[in-house]
Design a protein around this nucleic acid. Sequence first.
DNA 1: CTGAAAGCGCTTACAG
DNA 2: CTGAAAGCGCTTACAG
Lengths: 355, 355
Amino acid sequence: MNLTKPATLADIGRAVGVSAMSASAVLNGSKTSTRISAETRNRILEEAARLRYRPNAAARALNRRKMNTLGLAGIVDSGELNAYFLEILNGVLEAAGRFNQNITVFTLHDWNVDSGRLADFCDGRIDGLILVAPVIAKPQPELFPAHTPFVSLHSNHAIPGVINIESDEEKGAQDIVQHLLQQGHTDILHLAGPAGMLGTRRRLAGFKKALAAAKPRKLVARSIEGGFSSEDAASALRTWMRDNQGATLPTALFCANDASALGCMEVLSQAGLRVPHDISIAGFDDTIAARTSVPQLTTIRQPLRQMGGKAVELIVNREQNPRPESDNIVFPTQTMFRASVAQPPKKPIPVPDLR
Amino acid sequence: MNLTKPATLADIGRAVGVSAMSASAVLNGSKTSTRISAETRNRILEEAARLRYRPNAAARALNRRKMNTLGLAGIVDSGELNAYFLEILNGVLEAAGRFNQNITVFTLHDWNVDSGRLADFCDGRIDGLILVAPVIAKPQPELFPAHTPFVSLHSNHAIPGVINIESDEEKGAQDIVQHLLQQGHTDILHLAGPAGMLGTRRRLAGFKKALAAAKPRKLVARSIEGGFSSEDAASALRTWMRDNQGATLPTALFCANDASALGCMEVLSQAGLRVPHDISIAGFDDTIAARTSVPQLTTIRQPLRQMGGKAVELIVNREQNPRPESDNIVFPTQTMFRASVAQPPKKPIPVPDLR
DNA sequence: CTGAAAGCGCTTACAG
DNA sequence: CTGAAAGCGCTTACAG
């Protein structure tokens, strides 16, 4: 394969018989571009086309101190991007296209271990960095180099100087539990996220608020710690079912997120129970998983794509508008009514024996 | 926010009282690095740490003509990366980590329209470009600048000078249809991909081979054009069911990929049919969707992550080994036996009325 | 052991 | 209207 070198402004200048600056003025639209004679201008354009000239990105970045590239950093768990990250990535890519930005994805494995790497990314290869669900208990300033703007999504802790984007999770949780109550459910199990996480606390708070607001009637409501992954949720539910062998099965499950809801669906399906006929399930997030599951998942939509797009927008517009509207931007949530929630079964069902 | 400028080698040199080159030698490990006195060396290291020096990526890239970044270009359909792309992205990111490469994602919407953009990405911002399932009927050389190495995954057409990575799709299709036959299925409907696509033809060929190899017995087998998306498959199946109202329902569906299998599952579920009790379904790819669906999908695994990793490896090792082992690398497939395929129902079931 | 020079490809003042 | 100069931050020969 013939790896010829790409043409430079100097090459074009030489071919046309002008300086590289003239070529620059014509091709890369600096202020002087209009002051080049039409004649020269055309010859430069022709030659550039002939040589397939493309301005070198590194050279330009060095000069302008701008790469037109934003970084997106998030956790890759068990070698796999999760559906939540994917939604955000979709929104980020879409907005990046609109703003003419490239997106470089940085994968981390553990915020405790890897938060020190963030600063390494700020070496001129990106103009800003978007943190997806960072968990940085002690956000020391040296982790966030001052010359690079950061924006976070669902940050677990406030980071000084970093705008955070989130959604009203508590309200969302409250809404969906209210929906379950309206459907007639009287025995709801909340499969919560990992203890100590902000999202876990907020969903739990919404769960409790909805119950408190319910008309006084015989309600059973409890929550157990599950996790944000299918596996963690499945194993938490299995454990709970073993421990509650023969007791009455809840009529509905409110899960920490879509992934955990699907993990539970799998466990229930293996136990011979049908969703929503025997038991209703609600998730949280409205990721692609909620839309492709069978039955489709009733869930709380966080507008993750818009939130990702907003992150891009904030960084890109930072120059014109360095003072953001707020340091914590909250998006509304929305209940997505789908097939996984129905009315409770007429008769109570016992917790099945897991073979 | 205080956007101070990052420290440069010159800053360090000035502070220590040596030249920027000495700092370069010590910090960025050029050949001469060992020849700096221990004393100077230490003072440079200390100062660099104090100033949080980080070599500027753009400057280094300009000098070395290497960005340590690879591009990944693929289609974003209806604003959404699909699960297939996601698997590859996971493999690419993993391998990129191993080889110390960054990954920039470029989203295209239509190969016909956007293939011209590929060359624009080759402006020094990436050192190589991975094409995901390109469909470029006339792969003219000017689309692929000679100074940038390209690798494709599942290319629909051979591209001169571009190594392609694929899997043995025909064999995979043959295997899974054989599995259906072994389970006792005698009426199999193949919901094929879009007409004219290489992957569609290969799966169809495998389907036919398996049928031909089956012991002669009463078999019904047919195929209809569906598509690679849930929506297209669902609508194709709905149409087929309307057209075949009251006829005998196939006992098994072999779908073009996992996404289309899930689309079909949704249609069947809405029609009150249960998988696999009433009808079996098999997919293709083994994406995350196959593992999170309920029931989990029996499917053909294409090792998409390894394939993505291989693409990275080929580009990174290109310098040492510019002549690749082959210009078309074929990975083996594997049948994933899961819950969506079982034995056919005892009695034939009629094609249901879609309300 | 260390530094002055030149260059990567582009751009931005500044002269003419 | 056009070009010579200087600089972005780094690296690679080449001198001393």
